[in-house]
Structures are given as C-alpha cells and as structure tokens.
Amino acid sequence: MLKRTDPAAAYKRVDFEALISGCDAQGLVRVCFDDAVAALERALWADAHDRPDIRRKALERAQMGLLTLLSGLDTSQPVSKSLDVFYRSLLARVTNAQKHFNRTAVEMTRDDLKDIAASLLGQPRKAA
C-alpha cells in the first residue's frame, strides 16, 4: 500500500530541493540563514498563538540551521573561530528555548542571525 503524503509538504520539499540544487556555496549559506531566521519567526508566532507543537518544530528547525552553519565553516578562514563561538552561543540560546521558552532570547537570536547574514552576505539589514 502507498503511504499517504501531505501534498503541500511534498511540494514544499521538492521546491526546497530544487532551490538548493541550483545554489553555489554563498547561496547555500544564504538559504541556511534565511531558513533559520524563518524558523525563529515561526517559533515566535507559535508562542504568541499558544501553539507549543509548532514552536517545538520551529526551534528544532532553527537548531538544524545553526548546526549546518557550524558544520560548514571554512576553518582556513581567519573569521571561522569567531563565527564558531558566535554560532555556538546562538545554538545554546535555541537549545535553552526548547526547554524554557524565552521570547526575548529568541528575538535576539533572530536579530543576531539577520545582522551576521547582512554582514557576511552583503544583504541590506531590514528595520524591524
């Protein structure tokens, strides 16, 4: 028998795979930042709307994005040690938020990710 699949989830997965298959290294880093920021924004929305199930999944997604950024650091670059410390501190905030949600810490993490993405990728920082 065929497994039932959520069509929206299937299309989203195909769309995401198509997006990353056409990316260069900088594009993949941008996708990681954008995905982690979007996940944190979903967690904030879920908290405001009393949806702990969505909040938990969103924080897990943000955690995976930060782990991906960490694992992709080019250790031959001088800035990699600073980024390693920075990403690990953000990861600690997200991990702590999974246990005891702290809206301010999650907002700070989202904003920090936006700032570092703007700096590293040359993206303009949008006002909050």
Rank of each mutant, 00 (worst) to 15 (best):
S71L: 01
D84Y: 05
S82L: 06
R93L: 01
H49A: 08
A58I: 15
I54L: 13
K12R: 12
K126W: 04
R56V: 04
R30P: 00
K114T: 09
A25C: 01
T109V: 08
D112I: 04
L113A: 00
M1P: 12
V85D: 06
N102R: 08
R30A: 15
V94Q: 06
R4I: 11
A39C: 06
D24Q: 07
C23H: 02
V79A: 13
D84M: 08
L113D: 00
V31D: 01
A39Q: 09
L83D: 00
H100K: 13
K12Y: 05
P124Y: 09
T68S: 05
G27S: 09
T104F: 03
C32L: 15
M64G: 04
L28F: 08
S119R: 11
S80I: 09
R56D: 10
G122D: 11
T95M: 11
V14F: 05
G122W: 07
E107S: 06
T109C: 15
S119N: 07
S80V: 11
S80P: 14
S119Y: 11
I54H: 03
K99Y: 05
K57E: 14
S119E: 12
V14Q: 13
V85I: 10
F86K: 01
R56C: 03
A38M: 05
Q98L: 11
F33C: 01
D15V: 10
R125C: 04
A128G: 10
Q26K: 15
Y11H: 12
L73C: 05
Q77Y: 10
F33A: 01
E107P: 01
D15K: 11
R56K: 12
Y11Q: 10
M108L: 14
Q123E: 15
L70K: 01
N96Q: 13
Q63R: 12
C32T: 00
P7C: 06
F86D: 02
E107A: 06
K126L: 12
V94S: 03
L91V: 05
R56S: 12
A25L: 09
T104I: 06
V29A: 02
A36N: 04
L121T: 05
R125Y: 03
L121W: 05
R55A: 01
G27W: 02
A8L: 13
L67P: 00
H49T: 14
A117D: 08
R42T: 03
